[in-house]
Design a protein around this nucleic acid. Structure first.
Lengths: 205, 205, 205, 205
DNA sequence: GATGAATGAGCGTTCATTCAT
DNA sequence: GATGAATGAACGCTCATTCAT
């Protein structure tokens, strides 16, 4: 039916609106200090309506988290894929992730709080999904680096560990920036991250 | 008075017992899903007794976190200070931190839901203390690396960024290990971390 | 909207029902020995519902007190205003107050444990309101007596003190009656109060 | 034994010390906001010791109240008895009671709060004792007034009601004074009370 | 479908009282 | 006798979820 298609479009629009408002509120106050009434008010829906879109508060929260993170992964992978050559791909990876953090500071700060413990409760399925997505992301990086090793551009180190290292070097800069109020744009760290990842800290003569 | 000395010893023993049990429980369930009654039961005290040692649930939690973290910093700094030479010091730093994670996996997992300093849950004073301690730790690493730059052993990069990078490379391995149930000892990553930090991933001809 | 009008009517009905039950319970057990669960049970609402009508236990209590007292003042003033002549007005005042006590014995007994204004239990704003209302009531009596002095019907004594005296003579009879279980109607004291207030106890030859 | 006599003297001294401190604290904070630990601290005894003198908090409180009130009655009766002639006796009654209120304002203010509801709980025996003492006091006044009637000095009105009236006229002035912060000495009301009680408010030609 | 009033389980905390020392 | 640490029952309040309208 055509009608049901429109309905579904509308459904998705409303759902997205709720998620958008929920993100803002959760980002600013954490999980436990937010009430369903608050989200209902901010998104212009009634409390009851929220339950047509999400099974409950936890579901709403974890959906918001995982959809946003998936979006991040998507963007990153897209940027990386459109880059040519190993170094450029790594650079694109760094740039894309820093860019996301830069533009979603409040959201990212959620992870500096202890709030995603919410996920540890009932939402095991969602939590596992999140970890799974993370692994996939790491695997994605791993694959790139593996090809670098194959090409002889990178040293022959365990690719999984390399991927982890690269990922956390980006995170290092991000966390530092998130904790510090008002500093220069996070993108300035891009070169440093690439440099330290490729060449290390030691001076070579 | 001799008597008050014994009392104080007993007081500290009991306090430590509570903290030990609280750590286990908080580690497995987070902050909000734990009740004072649960901690009381596990530690063999009455609910009321808990309040002779801690001002409330938050205080108990934040005390547990910060005392444990301070212990980690102490151990690390101690190990590093007893090492001679830049490389050995960095190695000691890595080893000491991996060792702590290895021996306190449950505790560390708290931080997988919540970053290094974990939390809005803490009374501001305690939270600030914790952040302060973290900064001091980073500064400690920074100082070592700075001397390495001075000596010409390390490249002339921003020492603060280097310290951050090193710290997160250790974290990278730790997180990977913490997420994976049952693997080899975390210490095996020691050499890799040192290697990647010093020489980077790129092959140099 | 018509709808909201009905809702409001319902809201007020429910609110009044709670207050009515709360009055009975508070009157019989005081403030501290009453639980919200008890009031909820007696009034046929859930605990949570109580909080839709009142901010908390204190608010419920002080609202009950002050609304009832205001009602008493209203009735008294109304009766007095519809009387003509000084003596009749004083008589109406006595009669109206005795009548209220007669019909609200349990409520009034609250004040035998705690004076006219009853309480530290109230939010300051409400407490002040209550004291203010009391002063207004005394002023109301004062005004009547003042006109009696002007007319030469009453002796030239401080009107405020006279008002106080009259008010407490009524109280004297009320307290005596409230403390004695099962006696004749309180209204029988009406003549005595008027007599003693006007002519005093001494025999004049 | 002589020894047990000294013991008893000591016991009574300590008991009185506790009651004295308890009065101050209860007077300033009411019943429920005072802890046994607070009284113990203020009176220089341990918590446990308090229970050697009183069965519990309520017992301590009600004992303090009734002993103090009994003291008041004693003083009043004593003053009255040493006065000669009806009018002087009534005057002594008024003066003695105003004097007590003047010197024990904080204590008296307890009764303007709703705290003696404490007595409504378990301490039925004590509460009854208190009411009984009150009745005895009223009876004492009644007897004096009755003799006045017999002598033809007072009008032939129900002596019990007269006693009540006189008692509450004194109370009227006391309450007014207690509620007002900083005013002239309460004793100034003495003449007014006597005057209004004897002659009433109406002008007689 | 949409609403939001009603529900009631759940928890942190206090403090009078007890009792081992 | 004196102490004060230990006990644990008790209660106000919140808020996710439901369901009658």
């Amino acid at each position: 039916m055509v009608r049901s298609e429109r309905k579904e479009r509308e459904f998705n629009t409303r759902r997205a609106e709720i998620l958008e408002q929920a993100e803002k509120i959760f980002a600013s106050k954490g999980f436990h200090d937010v009430t369903m009434a608050e989200i209902a008010g901010a998104s212009g829906f009634s409390i009851g309506s929220l339950y047509q879109f999400f099974k409950g508060k936890e579901h709403l929260y974890s959906t918001m988290i995982s959809e946003k993170i998936d979006l991040m992964y998507q963007k990153i992978h897209q940027e990386v894929k459109s880059a040519k050559g190993l170094i450029d791909q790594i650079d694109a990876l760094i740039e894309a992730q820093l860019h996301f953090v830069d533009n979603n500071a409040d959201f990212c700060r959620i992870f500096l709080r202890g709030e995603n413990e919410a996920l540890s409760k009932m939402m095991t399925s969602n939590r596992e999904q999140l970890i799974n997505d993370y692994y996939q992301h790491i695997s994605f990086i791993e694959k790139i680096l593996k090809s670098g090793i194959k090409n002889g551009l990178l040293r022959s180190l365990p690719p999984r560990d390399l991927a982890n290292a690269l990922s956390h070097l980006i995170r290092a800069a991000s966390v530092d920036w998130l904790l510090m109020p008002s500093k220069e744009s996070l993108s300035l760290k891009r070169k440093f991250i690439l440099d330290i990842f490729l060449h290390g800290a030691q001076k070579h003569n």
